[in-house]
């Protein structure tokens, strides 16, 4: 058989639109997922029951259901309870963000727990409140330890963004589907998209390896 990437290149504008869509949903889910994850992670760390239990239930539920099920639930089921419709972008972002929040919450919790008690005592001795100690003393140190795990999460979010194509959100994979069905070139279209994803994710994976090695050396 004959490989013909010209038919994919001819549609590079469609791929560009898809790439913008992928980047948009990645950015939204990265900020929302890791941000909400910090709140939930603090909840998991808290000793107060009315803070701890909802956070735990959230984490368990979103970690123990497939993210595609969550996306389809937000797209098909949630609008029935809501007075407004939900766009593919909103449904996919909700599913991926909440799922990532649950996973990153456990990273934050483990990171905070890994900081020695003495750091807390030291902050207290200087007259800091709990929140001040958390913000100024504990989190900066914990974040350093968490960086490799959080970069890993970012990679997962990037990969999960392809699931948005299941609700017809315009991203790279969705555009590949479109190109393949219009030009009858699924081999080239899907290979091209696979290569694009690999090219984007490979540097991120190397960065994670580098951060892991540096952390192992520093500690």
């Amino acid at each position: 058989m004959q490989w013909d990437f010209a038919s994919v290149l001819a549609n590079s504008d469609a791929l560009l639109v898809g790439a913008m869509g992928t980047l948009r949903i990645f950015a939204i889910c990265l900020v929302a997922g890791l941000g909400l994850g910090l709140v939930v992670g603090l909840g998991r760390y808290s000793r107060r029951r009315w803070f701890y239990w909802p956070a735990t239930a959230f984490v368990e539920f979103f970690r123990n259901t497939p993210v595609l099920v969550q996306i389809l639930w937000f797209y098909f089921a949630l609008p029935i309870l809501m007075p407004f419709s939900i766009s593919p972008l909103a449904a996919a972002s909700l599913g991926i963000s909440l799922n990532s929040a649950a996973f990153s919450a456990e990273i934050y919790r483990a990171g905070i727990q890994s900081i020695e008690r003495a750091q807390w005592d030291g902050a207290r001795a200087l007259g800091m409140s709990f929140l001040q100690a958390m913000r100024r003393i504990i989190l900066p140190q914990a974040l350093k330890r968490m960086t490799p795990a959080l970069t890993n999460r970012a990679i997962e979010i990037f990969k999960m963004s392809t699931l948005a194509s299941a609700v017809a959100y315009v991203e790279l994979l969705q555009q590949a589907k479109l190109i393949a069905s219009l030009n009858f070139n699924p081999i080239e279209a899907y290979t091209a998209v696979a290569v694009i994803f690999f090219a984007c994710l490979w540097p991120m994976v190397q960065l994670t390896y580098f951060l892991e090695r540096r952390l192992a050396r520093d500690e």
Binding site: I155, L173, A176, I187, Y190
Partner: peptide, 23 residues
């Protein structure tokens, strides 16, 4: 190992379902 760990599983699935049979 690197290729399959760093590409999205849905892209892999589509590739094996739509592209591989033609090859």
């Amino acid at each position: 190992i690197e290729v399959f760990r760093t590409t999205p599983p849905l892209v892999q699935l589509f590739w094996f379902f739509f592209a591989l049979p033609l090859i």
